[in-house]
């Protein structure tokens, strides 16, 4: 996982930060111009409200420009937008003529910015994977509740040959006896990556932990915990995966397997597991014919039947 590669919400958040800086500066340096532009130069209250909004904008700009994960900070802008819209909404109701038009235009612009802010903040929300830059390791965690008895869920997972039915990046896992298995990936790679893994801990009905063995392009280990969901709601399942791709092209490629949002991917895997165990199949739509898959969310087919054949 390349921590320096900036995602879209990340870049948008930075741009919004610059926007906040510019607007805040203007509101503080030339409050009267801003008041006239917004059509509220007739209001006494706006004389204090506009510079106050300026200070607020500068407060938004800080974290947006310096934070490593700026997107969540956009929510502070959303809160500010809402305040502005409330004030403008009130101003709109009591103004007519040219002044009312100007207030209307600014209100519409703020509304548009609110949309962008909400979009950026919401898009950024999923993008906080756990990265440890020092050692290039990549960790992912996800949990899900499955409406099936714990023993059944455990048994299904314990047969590792079932894993590719719901783990998207796996082509096959072959049991080799005595807790050893052979894993083979698929995905955006030219060649498949393979490794052996051993079960390192096995507590029936509770926990399965595994670990890759020997020299591989991607050392990895994982664990899955099973517990009873309260009130007969089935089984709570918690998965933790860690990958330590070795430096070099292959290592980077392997890291890409888990994509931009490792947590999201593991969560999608668990959704498919839930579908298989509860509904008996991986649900497919015309927009997402392969079923739940993070990559597909961004590149949907039209919801139109697939060409036969």
């Amino acid at each position: 996982m390349n921590a320096h590669q900036e995602s879209t919400p990340h870049r948008l958040a930075r741009a919004l930060g610059w926007g906040s800086l510019a607007l805040g500066g203007l509101q503080l340096a030339a409050p009267d111009t801003v008041r006239k532009l917004a059509g509220v130069d007739d209001s006494r209250a706006s004389r204090t409200l506009v510079p106050m909004a300026g200070v607020r904008e500068l407060l938004h700009a800080g974290p947006l420009l310096v934070s490593r994960e700026p997107a969540p900070w956009v929510w502070t802008r959303v809160a500010g937008d809402v305040m502005d819209l409330a004030v403008l909404g009130r101003a709109l109701g009591s103004r007519s003529g040219g002044r009312g038009l100007r207030t209307g235009a600014v209100t519409a612009a703020v509304a548009a910015l609110t949309a962008l802010d909400v979009y950026t903040a919401a898009r950024g929300a999923g993008a906080t994977a756990h990265r440890r830059d020092e050692d290039n390791a990549l960790e992912a965690h996800a949990a899900i509740t499955i409406n099936r008895p714990r023993a059944q869920v455990y048994r299904f997972w314990h047969d590792f040959s079932n894993l590719p039915r719901f783990m998207d990046h796996l082509e096959s896992v072959e049991p080799r006896g005595q807790g050893r298995s052979h894993w083979r990936t698929r995905g955006p790679l030219k060649r498949t990556v393979e490794w052996d893994a051993d079960i390192v801990e096995d507590r029936p009905g509770k926990l399965i932990a595994w670990q890759s063995v020997g020299r591989t392009a991607v050392e990895n280990h994982g664990s899955v915990w099973f517990s009873d969901a309260p009130g007969g709601r089935g089984t709570e399942l918690r998965v933790h995966l860690a990958y330590e791709p070795r430096a070099g092209r292959l290592g980077t490629a392997v890291a890409k397997l888990l994509g931009e949002h490792p947590d999201q991917q593991v969560h999608d895997d668990l959704r498919r597991l839930k579908q298989v165990l509860e509904a008996g199949e991986v649900v497919r739509s015309e927009g997402s014919p392969e079923g739940t898959r993070a990559m597909r969310l961004l590149r949907q087919r039209p919801a139109q039947p697939l060409v036969s054949g």
Partner: peptide
């Protein structure tokens, strides 16, 4: 009413 203008402006943003 003024609420009309308020909601129109916000919804026009296609949020």
């Amino acid at each position: 009413g003024p609420l009309h203008a308020y909601d129109r402006a916000k919804q026009a943003a296609r949020l």
